[in-house]
Design a protein around this nucleic acid. Structure first.
Lengths: 230, 230
DNA sequence: TTGAAAATGCGTATTATTTACACAAATATA
DNA sequence: TATATTTGTGTAAATAATACGCATTTTCAA
């Protein structure tokens, strides 16, 4: 068994945001390098003394200034031996959700460009990043139905109609508003707040918030979140 | 960003087998090396010109002589920087299911020992392999409920009671035999064969087989396999 | 030879969940 | 003051899950 490996290991992050009923992903464009013409997922090589998680967080902070709400490992891409033209690079992709209303993205000191791209309208990306993104979208869709992660894309307080639109948009399905509300409320994991919507059309709506402690407690009792649609 | 990385990349395989109503995992013991006293998951370093998949398949063939029915990437373990005492090693763990009745395991030329261990009775393993195995068990339990992978642990033709016991054993739950049968049959993805069980107690039972083409066809129409229990 | 034991195979009543759909309430605006 | 718009609450019908009962077909032992 050869001890002489010349394989590099990188991390890439798929950061999803949601705004105005649209799903976005965060992309960067490097000013230098072989793939500088292409937009790419934020990421880079792992340092020798940092964990994979730390590597992702460092790269995101360096490159994009985002604050992450949710964060998990997605998949390791290492079956295309020539995915990077220079050296063999294996990339561990991570999947993150942010409340994009909470901050402004900004490019880092290397003068990289950073931009939200609507997921329905993604250009050709560097390396195999289109493939990685595709896998991220699949995971997002799947996870939305069996884990309460939709809240991590919304502001702390949100309208029921916003939550409903988020589900419709991402899953690309129609939902009956009334049944959706009934189902979510039946879980008991979201609470009414005292606040009302700032929107000035139609009947004023209460703002709700996700009750995470309650969710954790229910989970310990064996509760499973699940949203399904025909 | 440093180009001088000294991180090695390995693959490890969690190979599950099922026999006599018990779930097993395949472990090896190396004759040489720092961790030679411990049993470990089969695996090893990835070669420079092979994909991750190829690496797993090669290691399994070299080390254990198994034939795999099902095979998927599980998780990449790289957050414990010192998981291997010699160098930093990041391991991509794979998850495999085999019909253990189909072959005999045998140790390879390096005279490694290979053995099935019952999952309920696992010794302390090398490196962080207990943790990896734990994650594999979780994946198996979860996946069993929403993908028809239980069949990959059974012989081509099997009894309904064997399938039922497999679910009970792995999920550690009681199932109503009659409702289970009704539900599985309602999917239309398993077919009766002409053959009968060789068991010589009680009423003779038909052998069934998984109809994979039918399953694929149904899946294209939007069918989702799902087995749930209270 | 016959009855008990063991396991399969089929069915039905009850309960819970999902789906479809109706309408009143509260606000802005014309 | 009427209309448009969006929120909030039900209720009836259809579908699916659950809890059982019991006949059938074999082996084995009395």
């Amino acid at each position: 068994m050869s001890q002489n490996q010349n394989i590099r290991i990188a991390v890439d992050a798929i950061v999803f945001g949601y705004q105005n009923n649209k799903l976005y992903v965060l992309l960067i464009q490097q000013k230098f390098g072989a793939e500088k013409a292409y937009w790419a997922l934020p990421g880079g090589l792992v340092k020798e003394d940092e964990t994979l998680k730390e590597a992702v967080q460092r790269e995101l902070k360096e490159e994009t200034n985002v604050e992450i709400n949710y964060f998990e490992q997605l998949y390791t891409f290492g079956d295309d031996v020539h995915r990077d033209s220079r050296n063999r690079v294996i990339s561990v992709a991570y999947f993150a959700l942010v409340d994009s209303s909470k901050f402004e993205i900004k490019a880092d000191s290397d003068a990289e460009k950073v931009q939200w791209f609507e997921v329905k309208n993604i250009p050709e990306l560097a390396f195999d990043h289109n493939l990685i993104l595709q896998k991220g979208i699949e995971r997002l869709k799947a996870k939305l139905t069996y884990q309460p992660i939709g809240f991590d894309l919304l502001p702390k307080e949100f309208l029921f109609s916003e939550l409903e639109n988020l589900y419709c948009t991402i899953l690309e399905k129609e939902i009956d508003r009334r049944n959706f509300r009934k189902k979510i409320l039946s879980f008991g994991i979201i609470s009414e707040t005292e606040h009302f919507s700032p929107v000035k059309t139609g009947r004023p709506a209460k703002l709700f918030k996700f009750n995470k402690p309650k969710y954790n407690a229910l989970q310990d009792e064996g509760f499973h979140f699940e949203i399904k649609f025909a």
